[in-house]
């Protein structure tokens, strides 16, 4: 049972690291702001879920599991909020300037 938990925990943590890496590559290489937000949402959704879930399985029933659960629930609430606020601000900025360029170098 303990070996099974350890194997599942390792699997979860490593696959979480894979998701995080894929999202990071997408954040660097995608062409547009909204496609980059799509790539970042991959890491924000699957990364904490898999990595913190795997760590929870490794910790067992302890205070560390409770803390990890609190961090995970906090992430699950704040990530959509931050993504919505970012998309809303970017949309408003694009509508205000009436152009596709929202570069910060122009208005400096």
């Amino acid at each position: 049972m303990t070996e099974l938990l350890s194997v599942v925990s390792t699997l979860l943590v490593v696959s979480g690291g894979l998701f995080v890496l894929v999202g990071g590559i997408g954040l660097l290489r995608f062409p547009d702001l909204f496609t980059r937000m799509h790539a970042a949402s991959v890491t924000d959704a699957m990364g904490p879920l898999l990595i913190l879930g795997g760590l929870m399985l490794e910790a067992g029933w302890s205070l560390a599991t409770a803390k990890l659960l609190i961090i995970l629930v906090f992430f699950l609430f704040t990530t959509p909020t931050a993504t919505y606020a970012l998309a809303n601000a970017a949309t408003l900025a694009g509508a205000a300037k009436k152009s596709s360029g929202t570069s910060d170098k122009k208005d400096a």
Binding site: V13, V20, G23, G24, L27, L28, L33, R36, M37, A40, T43, D44, G47, P48, I51, L52, L55, L68, I71, F75, T79, A82, L86, A89, A90, A93, T102, S103, D104, K105
Partner: peptide, 29 residues
């Protein structure tokens, strides 16, 4: 790298947000 390159303000904010999320994950690991 995205935060340094990113053409718009929002790209930089997105990259900073993601950096912070990854710091939390790194601390947990």
């Amino acid at each position: 790298a995205r935060a340094l390159l990113g053409p718009s303000i929002f790209d930089r904010i997105l990259a900073a947000n993601m950096f912070g999320t990854k710091v939390v994950l790194l601390l947990a690991v």
